[in-house]
């Protein structure tokens, strides 16, 4: 009787053991929770730095260039101290913000202007956590609630803009907006922008076809004096700009800033809130 009971117990236990064993020997895949990090304005500096760190080593893709020593400066551990000395008149926070959203504005000696505008990859709130993380590399974190309030508004505007259909009427195009988003990272216009490519004022008076070719096939020829930067200009503007936008932009450049909207050529007037604040 006891023997039979033990046999029954053994049968049940063995069956369970075999099932458990088989399920355990196959490679184990656990479904992780997607990391969704909440960025709130009332976070402590440490929390912000933590999020920034995750971004820096994660989706931000920063380590692809920074830290290798050849493509971009090694910034870990030093960014928080050198930031204040790079550009006289800019605070550490201002400098770091600028180097994220307009990376080519200041190129560290010995490096090429290859970094992309990070605001196209991350939200403004995310960028501020990166600034906090970089500040923490040897310096003091000064990113605070005010920065996030503005960032949230800017993100909402960006979302709304992404949902809008491209314009079809050249006269309704916000050319200054296009310049700001697409051109001024490299070209100067009206005293703003960078010097990777020739200033856009030089285009005034050229033919429509010539400017169009310069935008759509930018690397067909290179302006004198800019040979080191040959091939840098992206070739995707023909796809990124709607036909109406392209037409308006070319007209604008031909005429040196005549048609539509802001004719005074000032870029700073309607700069987005994220940019003019620091």
């Amino acid at each position: 009787m006891l023997r039979t009971n033990l046999k029954i117990l053994f049968t049940v236990a063995m069956t369970l053991a075999v099932f458990t064993f088989i399920a355990n020997v196959i490679p184990q895949v656990q479904s992780a929770v997607p990391e969704e990090i909440e960025i709130r304005a009332d976070m402590t500096p440490d929390e912000l730095v933590g999020i920034g760190e995750t971004l820096y080593f994660g989706v931000g893709g920063c380590t692809a260039c920074h830290g290798l020593g050849t493509r971009a400066p090694d910034i870990l551990g030093v960014a928080g101290t050198v930031c204040a000395t790079r550009n006289p008149g800019q605070s550490c926070k201002e400098y770091l913000w600028e180097s994220l959203v307009s990376p080519v504005s200041y190129i560290v000696e010995g490096f090429q202007p290859i970094m992309l505008d990070q605001s196209r990859l991350m939200s403004q709130a995310e960028l501020w956590t990166l600034v906090a993380f970089l500040e923490a590399q040897g310096g003091e974190v000064t990113v605070g609630p005010d920065d996030f309030a503005a960032a949230a508004a800017a993100d909402e505007a960006a979302l709304a803009a992404a949902a809008e259909p491209p314009p079809t009427d050249p006269s309704a195009v916000d050319v200054m907006g296009i310049l700001r988003v697409h051109c001024l990272a490299c070209h100067a216009y009206g005293g703003q922008g960078a010097m990777v490519g020739p200033p856009l004022e030089e285009l005034t008076g050229r033919s429509y076809e010539e400017i169009e070719r310069g935008i759509l096939e930018p690397n067909a020829d290179t302006a004198a004096g800019y040979e080191p930067f040959a091939g840098v200009m992206p070739t995707y503007y023909g796809d990124q700009l709607a036909p109406a936008e392209l037409e308006a932009l070319i007209q604008f450049l031909m005429e040196g800033g005549a048609p539509g909207g802001s004719t005074d050529g000032s870029v700073g007037d309607d700069a987005p809130p994220g940019e003019d604040r620091p």
Partner: peptide, 11 residues
């Protein structure tokens, strides 16, 4: 696949 992705930041 995820239920939602972003394309250059656009959901």
């Amino acid at each position: 696949p995820p239920g939602e992705i972003t394309f250059r930041g656009e959901p």
